[in-house]
Design a protein around this nucleic acid. Structure first.
Length: 490
RNA sequence: CGGGGUGUAGCACAGUCCGGUUAGUGUACCUGGUUUGGGACCAGGGGGUCGCAGGUUCGAAUCCUGCCUCCCCGACCA
C-alpha cells in the first residue's frame, strides 16, 4: 500500500484511476482497453446485480441467454442499428490457428479456416434476439415477451477508461416484445423508473430522467429515455438507457403476430440496459481524497472492526467482547469484517479501510474494554464517537441508514450548486464550464451540433415532467417552449 | 487515427542528454528484535532477460532502426 498521491481537485482523472486501482476494484488487463475486475470490485457489481435483478423480476421479467456471436447477415438487418455500431465491432473471420512453418513455436491464423460468413461479437443483442423472437411469436397470445440477459458485450472504442468505457464490459440488456405501441412505451418508461429508483435509493446518486435528442438517440430506436447523473467534476454521465424501438426490429426481422381480429401486425419492442459503467459513477460521485466512499447498501463490508492490542491476551479479551457484537450485527443483516491481523498496525488498517470505502469502522482497545465502550467512525464525514456497547446495534444500524441518506443529499446539493440557468450565449459559455446548464433550444439537430462544436457540451436530455415556458434558443434565437439539460459528458 | 508522454524489482521513480565498476532509491516483500488508540522503528536479506527485435561498438538501460504497450489530450462514443 502506498501513500495517496492524487487530489480530486487537482487531477480528477488521476484521482479516479488511483482509486480504482488502489481500492482493489479493477486493473488494466494484458488486453488493450480491457480490465480485470478484482474480487472487491466484483463484489460491489454483484450487489448491483442483485438489486437490479430483483427489480426486473418484480416487474415480471425473466432471465435468458443469447449467443455472443451474431452472423453478419443478421447484424446488418436493422440498418440504422447496424450502421450505428458498425465502426466499433470486433469481427471473427477465422476459427483455427496453426503452427507457423517459418517461425518455430509461433502460431498463425490458418488461412484454410476462413469462415464463410463472418461473426460479429455482440456490441448489443437486438439482432440475435429479434431473429430468435421471430420463431417464438405467432399470436397475440405469445405476447408480451419480457426478457433480460446478463452478459458481456464488446465495443471497440478508440479510447477507454476503467469502468467508464472499456472494450469489453458487463451489463444487462432487457428485450421485450409487445402487441401495442402503448404497451411498449409504458414498458420503456417503467424500466426508466426502475433505473432511477435503483440509482437514487441504492447508488445514492440523484438522476435526471429524460428523453434523448435525435442526435443522441440509440441507433434503431424511435425514442431513447435515459437517466443522467452529475459527477464531482461537474460532467454528466449517462447511467442507464431505456429504448422504445417501435416496430423497427420487428420489420427488419419480419416478426408479426395475429391479433384478435385475425390480422397480421408487426410487434412492438423495447430494450434497456445498464452496465459496469455504474461502478464508475459510484466512484466519481461519492469518493474523496482518502479513497472510495461506498453507500452502505452496496458495500461488500458495511462494518469493519479494528482491534487495538499490544499482546495476545489483549486480543483474546477483545475477541471475546467482539464475537457477540459480530453475531448481533450479522443477525441484523449487516456484513461485518473483524480485522484481527497482527501484521498491520491500527493506523494502517484505518487508512486501508477508508481507501476501500467501508462505511462504518469500529475500533476497540483495552481502554474500551474497561469502560464498556467502543469507538464508532463513519466514512462519509470522518466523524468519530465513543458509544456504550449496549447501544451499539441500534447505533450502527441507524448510522448505516444515515450514511446512505447523507451521501444522496450531498450529491443532490452538489448538483444543485453546479446547475445553472442560462438565457444568453455568453452566460451559457461561462456556466457550461461548471456543470449542467438549463437552456432553451430550438429543437434542431443542427443547432445542437453547432453548440457541441463550439463548447463540447451536448444535450444530455429533455427532462420528463419538464415545465413548459416560452423562450428563445440559446444559439439561434428561435422560439422554444422548454429548457433542456446541457452539459459536457463522459 | 492525430498530438504529447511513457516503458528500469509488486508499485512509484532516478540513471539515458554526454556508452564504461557488480543498475540505484523509496515503498512493498522475507527474517530477527523493539513497537501497536491514525499509514512504526532498527538491523539483516531476497527479488531485474532495463518493453520487444535487430544494428553500431572492445563494451549498450544509455546511441541508431523497426515494432509494441500503457497513460493524458483530441477525434469517435448507441
Amino acid at each position: 500500500m502506498e501513500l495517496k498521491k492524487y487530489k480530486r481537485s487537482e487531477d480528477y482523472s488521476g484521482w479516479y484511476n488511483y482509486i480504482v486501482e488502489n481500492a482493489d476494484l479493477a486493473e488494466h488487463a494484458a488486453v488493450k482497453g480491457c480490465m480485470v475486475i478484482k474480487p472487491y470490485g466484483f463484489a460491489i457489481w454483484e450487489k448491483m446485480q442483485q438489486e437490479l435483478d430483483k427489480r426486473f423480476k418484480d416487474t415480471g421479467h425473466s432471465n435468458a441467454y443469447f449467443p455472443l456471436f451474431i452472423p453478419k447477415s443478421l447484424f446488418e438487418a436493422e440498418e440504422k442499428n447496424a450502421e450505428g455500431f458498425a465502426k466499433e465491432c470486433a469481427v471473427v473471420t477465422h476459427y483455427r490457428l496453426k503452427t507457423d512453418p517459418n517461425n518455430k513455436g509461433k502460431l498463425i491464423v490458418d488461412p484454410d479456416a476462413k469462415l464463410t460468413e463472418e461473426l460479429v461479437v455482440r456490441p448489443t443483442s437486438e439482432a440475435i434476439i429479434w431473429n430468435t423472437y421471430k420463431g417464438w411469436i405467432k399470436s397475440y397470445r405469445d405476447l408480451p415477451i419480457l426478457l433480460n440477459q446478463w452478459a458481456n458485450v464488446v465495443r471497440w472504442e478508440m479510447r477507454t477508461r476503467l469502468f467508464l468505457r472499456t472494450t469489453e464490459f458487463l451489463w444487462q440488456e432487457g428485450h421485450t416484445a409487445h402487441a401495442t405501441s402503448e404497451e411498449a412505451v409504458s414498458e420503456t418508461k417503467q424500466m426508466l423508473e426502475v433505473y432511477a429508483d435503483f440509482a437514487e435509493n441504492i447508488l445514492a446518486i440523484p438522476v435526471i430522467k429524460g428523453v434523448k435528442s435525435a442526435n443522441e438517440r440509440f441507433a434503431g430506436a424511435d425514442d431513447t429515455y435515459c437517466i443522467e447523473g452529475m459527477m464531482q467534476d461537474g460532467k454528466a454521465l449517462q447511467m442507464g438507457t431505456s429504448h422504445f424501438l417501435g416496430q423497427n426490429f420487428a420489420k427488419a426481422f419480419d416478426v408479426k403476430y395475429l391479433n384478435k381480429e385475425n390480422k397480421l401486425e408487426h410487434v412492438w419492442a423495447t430494450s434497456w440496459g445498464v452496465s459496469t459503467r455504474l461502478m464508475g459513477a459510484l466512484i466519481m460521485v461519492h469518493s474523496d481524497d482518502d479513497g472510495l466512499v461506498l453507500p452502505p447498501k452496496l458495500a461488500p463490508i458495511q462494518v469493519v472492526i479494528v482491534p487495538i492490542f499490544r499482546s495476545e491476551e489483549d486480543l483474546a479479551k477483545i475477541t471475546e467482547t467482539v464475537n457477540p457484537i459480530i453475531s448481533q450485527l450479522k443477525a441484523l443483516g449487516i456484513s461485518v469484517k473483524f480485522d484481527n491481523r497482527d501484521t498491520q498496525k491500527p493506523g494502517f488498517k484505518f487508512a486501508e479501510w477508508e481507501l476501500k470505502g467501508v462505511p462504518v469502522r469500529l475500533a476497540i482497545g483495552p481502554r474500551d474494554i474497561e469502560n464498556g465502550t467502543i469507538e464508532v467512525a463513519r466514512r462519509d464525514t470522518k466523524e468519530k464517537m465513543v458509544v456504550n456497547l449496549t447501544d451499539l446495534n441500534h447505533k450502527v444500524q441507524h448510522l448505516l441508514e444515515q450514511i446512505q441518506i447523507n451521501l444522496y443529499q450531498k450529491a443532490i446539493d452538489y448538483r444543485a450548486e453546479k446547475t445553472s440557468v442560462a438565457d444568453t450565449w455568453e452566460e451559457f459559455c461561462q456556466n457550461i464550464e461548471k456543470g449542467f446548464v438549463m437552456a432553451h433550444w430550438d429543437g434542431t439537430p443542427e443547432t445542437e451540433q453547432e453548440i457541441k462544436n463550439k463548447t463540447k457540451a451536448t444535450i444530455r436530455c429533455i427532462p420528463l415532467e419538464n415545465k413548459l415556458e416560452e423562450g428563445k434558443c440559446i444559439l439561434s434565437g428561435k422560439p422554444s417552449n422548454q429548457r433542456v439539460v446541457f452539459s459536457k459528458a463522459y
